[in-house]
Structures are given as C-alpha cells and as structure tokens.
Amino acid sequence: MGLEDAAGNLTPLDRELLNLLQSDFPLTGRPFAALGERLGLGEEEVMSRVAALKESGIIRRIGGIFDSGKLGFTSTLVALQVEEGKLREVAAAVSAYAGVTHNYRREHEFNLWFTLVTSSAEERERTLKEIEALPGVRALRNLPALRLFKIGVNFDMWENGEANSDDAP
C-alpha cells in the first residue's frame, strides 16, 4: 500500500523488483543475477535498477534485521519530567547515549520520552541513574514493556527505524 502511494512513478518492473527484494533476498553467491533470472533481466540491469532505487531514497538498505532480545539486549521506554528551561540541555545529554534510539518532547507533565537499548540490566540501571541526576530532571519513570499485544506488523510504513519493531517509542 505505502509503496504504491509514494511510488506512482515507478515502472511495473521496478515494483516487481522491489517486491522480490523485500520478500526473499537470495542468499546466494550472485544474488543480483538470481533476481535477474526471475525477472528476465541481466545481473547488471538489476544492479543498476537497485542503485537507482537507492539513489531516489526508496531503498534504505539491504541487510539483516535482528531481534534485539535474542542478541542479548533489552529495551525500555523512559518518561522524564524536566524543568522547561533545562529541557533542551537534558534532551541533548540523553540523546548522546548510543543506546538511546528515539527521544521526543511530548505535550505532558512528563515532557521528554526516550527509548533505551542496553546490553545488560546493570548498564540500564547505571544509565538511568546518570540521567536522573542531570540538572533539571524532576522525575524519571522506567516503563519497560510487560507484555506485547502488537509490534509494528507493517512497521516499514511507519516512522520507526526498522530495527525498532520491538522497542518503539
């Protein structure tokens, strides 16, 4: 659905290529040749079309999408109540952590919300303690998911990064 909306100027062949690229990328020595065989195109033609789709911004990347939990990482959502005058400073300090993937100001008493991915409970606790101690932070509430009812089934069309289907903001 999203693709058709945004890609009205794509040729039917490009759409077919995108569908193939998304459904099963060949895990073989010459994947672009394999894709070409299915589309009746040469390897070079497939590669130049993929290059064009990257150039136009339709393709973000070709690669692996990993399960953060199975890699040993845990994620959580955190709500902060920050003094208005200090919000930008605190937001910058929070964003500086590599494990912070999303960080937004929201219209609420809890005015700064971020997701934090860490490789251990200790790292999470330490990071949260550091953030809680930042000047201007009045309250910090750790809100890890207790239960998932739905995790971005069609997340490609939403705003979240593809690696964040399990730690959405």
């Binding site: 659905m1 999203g2 909306d5 990328f25 690669g63 069309m157 939403w158 705003e159």
Partner: peptide, 20 residues
C-alpha cells in the same frame, strides 16, 4: 531467530501519514 529476516528495507513511504 537472531536475525528476523535478511531483506531490503524501504524508507517510510506512506505518503501523507505524518501525524502520530
């Protein structure tokens, strides 16, 4: 299951769906 899939990741292209 460490890797959910090996695939092509598209950019957010649901034109106009910007409110969240």
């Amino acid at each position: 299951g460490v890797m959910r899939r090996f695939s092509t990741i598209l950019r957010h292209h649901r034109a106009g769906y910007t409110a969240n």
